[in-house]
Write a protein that binds this DNA or RNA. Structure first.
Ligand SMILES: [Zn+2]
Ligand SMILES: [Zn+2]
Ligand SMILES: [Zn+2]
Ligand SMILES: [Zn+2]
Lengths: 160, 160
DNA sequence: TCGGGTATTGATATGTTATAACATCCGGTC
DNA sequence: GACCGGATGTTATAACATATCAATACCCGA
């Protein structure tokens, strides 16, 4: 299990690596990483934090890449469908995938204070949830696993 | 592990039992199950389905109990805080708790076709998520565990 | 029963997130 | 060049949620 987000790391490499992987994947899968889509991915990659669609739109608009909500939502939809980003349901926000390329079932650790998000790659079977689904005859297509609390940095300051 | 929602059951008893438990809990904890709050709980209990705040508001308004959004949101906040209802993050919607009285960490099985929701009382599902949090030094306060897919009934019809 | 604090409700306005609908452009193909 | 499909531009609106302040109900002790 790998958790990415709170550790200090070579983030510049982290970003360029993710962009390179996204480009390779697009080339291989006949997807188009257009300027707006690429820029939105860069914005999401800039920090390991969740950004709202309208945060994104603010940046795009400042850069002359589009001013209306569909611009941001289309790009985000593309990135999420392509697996380059994830939606954080508990925040109605979006974050770049930290395990680009790997087929995974993400779980998130979300700091309520600084809004940073760590992506943990949990086991796919979802232990007990999978059992419950099987018992109930429920066919799982997608799971949302999000834990909210305080990240290591914010615990020391103990931001209420 | 108990999953409630898809099985056929004595739903009339299910509802009155839940209302009785809620009343008992309010009496014991100095909480007030006012008319609007009680009615909203009844509406949520009516089916094992998630209802949006504005669905609720529609009913309330038809019954002369209030017409403005805060009426619904206040009642829902009360019910959620009291543990009588849960918020489904993936739907921005609300559902009555199926394990009233028990201290539990709910997990939900959400049918994308009929919007019915089963509440499974998993073990503090922090199996692997808890491990990841511990490794990262993250202090979990609340978890969201929601699986989306098709319920048994909707698989047969295979609603796309 | 009177006051005073607290919880609740009423009412208005606004903020935030997301999509529908339709026109237009642009690159590749025949 | 005509066509097609994906991507964008543009307008409007739907859906979800909260801030704020005034008014009222409730409880409790003086
Ligand atoms: Zn990084
Ligand atoms: Zn933090
Ligand atoms: Zn029932
Ligand atoms: Zn169903």
């Amino acid at each position: 299990m790998t958790t990415i987000g709170f550790e200090t790391h070579d983030h510049h490499a982290c970003v360029s690596d993710a962009l390179a992987k996204a480009e390779a994947r697009c080339a291989a899968s006949d997807l188009r990483l257009t300027p707006v889509r690429r820029r939105v991915l860069e914005l999401l990659l800039a920090e390991h934090r969740a950004l709202g669609a309208y945060d994104i739109l603010g940046h795009l608009s400042a850069e002359g890449l589009g001013t209306q909500p569909p611009v941001a939502y289309r790009a985000l939809d593309f990135l999420v469908k392509a697996g380059f980003a994830h939606r954080i349901e508990a925040l109605n926000a979006y974050i770049a995938c930290a395990h680009l390329g790997a087929d995974h079932t993400p779980a998130f650790l979300i700091c309520r204070s600084c809004r940073s998000v760590a992506e943990s790659d949990t086991a796919p079977s979802q232990g007990r949830l999978g059992d419950a689904a099987r018992d109930a005859g429920f066919q799982i297509e997608h799971t949302v696993i999000e834990a909210q609390g305080l990240c290591p940095a914010c615990q020391t300051g103990d931001a209420a």
